[in-house]
Design a binder for these strands. Structure first.
Lengths: 330, 330
DNA sequence: TTGTATGCGTTATCAT
DNA sequence: ATGATAACGCATACAA
């Protein structure tokens, strides 16, 4: 593992010049010297130590992403889009999975900050993520959902309440008379928003409503629905908080011999590609995943603005086979 | 962002003592002094700079993982298991997604090495991943599939050939007469292994065989199968290289109105939870994901051994609803 | 027990 | 144009 001084020695010059050559600046280097340095670096197979570079430069050219569950297709697809987005800024994305554990979420955030990521992007399990360490170090933070007013972070997300409302309106328009809502844990702020949207969409309608809450996993959704959908007066339409849960609903419906969408219509929020290839394909309010990633990267990496910025991006209902829509919709 | 000298000054001591306190060594500290240091650190909200610590210590307490596609459930579930495994060694897992692009794979490996990860774990797109930079820096590498003899890395994996053989034998035993193999790109060494297992399982049997190759995505599998399964002499059983592809096959079968498993039986390799909740649930040769992660972490983080180690872990066939099995199997 | 001083590999300022 | 050198923040061998 050769260092810059090894290269300098072999090239008969100093470490400063080696640095100038590898960084194209801030000072110019005579073509002949430059060539000797590159030659020496080549023969020694020199590669700058990024740790030392980071210590000296005060930045690591990396962005930390904290998600609750990388096996949830929404987060996996988002991570992929974000990696592409930050790569355009010449940054490396570091993905951390908190495994739906608040303690691990805290530790991940702290670890990333201690390792001096240039920015932090997160989907938190709580409405008030512990960002004190980050804000104290001056690390720009961007959340993927609405945040409490005192949280020192920007946010980029859709309007979850409106999205839920749109989804449920679709169920109503499809003729559902008993609509069930499968929500995520109410510790998450988006669950509250979705509940509001659900109420808004149903309260003036002639439909029964029922609600359940489960962890945001297909397994939990599956098990909840095995019971729920066995009941004699089961819902004929279900609004799931996210695609991940909806996949569990689909599995449960199939297990119980229910025909989707005839016996049971299902709509969710996320619009993942996993939902598009589900059986039957899942109707879902699609989040603009790539745009969310692009904006999150831009906010996180742009010169520190005066204060937190909160952006809401548009969504659209992707009607597929898990709901029966009126002919006009197809 | 206070440093150790700030803490030392406030505590009326030296940076050495601060270091001793925060690392519990290598020298002891008088209880009273220790208390003053902790007190000072507390009031200043001091946190050691991990970049500086890494430069000084020569290690970063991190492990890099390179996968081709984090949206592939196998890799997502593996990443999750690996994060847990390395956390037990007090290491942080950094996940990199090469987006099925060999160039990005190379760059990720180099970037991780330049950032001095303590070890590298990877699933490569090629039979000969570019590990020269890593081996030169002496970074222990572990692959998640068999490797060519000259590759400077250990490996942990199942026997893909045997796994494919087992899967196809199940299709034969289920009464399939025309078995199709949907393989991944032959640039991947595991594809070759699976092809061998497929041949081995079918060559003495009275069955027709057909083969297709696609990218390892459900989308590619879906589109290939839309054509393939529309043919009049379509297969009545399909062996897919991985769960990710099998999900695309399921979607295509459903789209074409084929009943799985009656018209078409499907078996794959991976045994992901995504497959377990597919509709219908997917029969698959299950990789021991947690054990793979544990062994990969152990090999990567154990004291550098004499040479590469290659481990093969056991798999088992998980029979679910996408195949029709003889009563005895249920 | 604790303070001093050096090294880790870069970057960048200040001389030359 | 380029060489010497002081940071960057921490760890630790060496002194005291």
């Amino acid at each position: 593992m050769p260092t810059a001084s090894d290269v300098a020695r072999l090239a008969g010059t100093s470490t400063a010049v080696v640095s100038y050559v590898f960084n194209d600046g801030p000072r110019g280097v005579a073509p002949a010297t430059r060539e000797r340095v590159l030659q020496a670096a080549e023969t020694l197979r020199y590669r700058p130590n990024e740790v030392a570079r980071a210590l000296s430069a005060g930045r690591t050219d990396s962005v930390g992403l904290v998600v609750p569950d990388i096996t949830n297709p929404f987060f996996a697809e988002f991570a992929r889009a974000l990696e592409t987005a930050v790569a355009r800024h010449d940054k490396l994305l570091l993905i951390g999975d908190s495994a739906m554990d608040a303690t691990r979420e805290d530790r991940l955030i702290e670890t990333f900050v201690d390792r001096r990521v240039d920015a932090l992007i997160f989907a938190s399990l709580r409405r008030e993520p512990r960002l004190s360490v980050a804000s104290q170090q001056g690390v720009p933070c961007v959340g993927l959902h609405p945040l409490g007013p005192d949280v020192p972070a920007s946010s980029v997300s859709i309007d979850y309440s409106a999205a839920a409302c749109r989804a449920v309106a679709h169920l109503v328009a499809s003729g559902c008379t008993h609509i069930g809502m499968l929500n995520g844990p109410t510790t998450e702020i988006t669950s509250e928003d979705r509940a509001n949207g659900f109420m808004h969409a149903t309260h003036a309608e002639q439909v029964r409503t029922t609600r359940r809450e489960t962890e945001m996993t297909r397994r939990a959704a599956f098990e909840t629905c095995l019971v729920w959908l066995s009941s004699s007066d089961r819902p004929d339409g279900i609004f799931a908080a996210c695609d991940e849960q909806a996949l569990g609903v689909l599995a449960a419906a199939h297990r119980l011999g229910l025909n989707v969408p005839i016996d049971l219509a299902i709509v969710a929020v996320d619009g993942t590609s996993a939902g598009a290839y589900a059986v039957p394909s899942l109707t879902s309010v699609a989040q603009p995943i790539v745009a969310l990633a692009d904006r999150a990267a831009a906010l996180a990496l742009s010169p520190p603005s005066s204060g937190p910025v909160h952006e809401e991006l548009p969504f659209h209902l992707e009607i597929r086979s898990s709901t029966r829509s009126r002919p006009a919709d197809r």
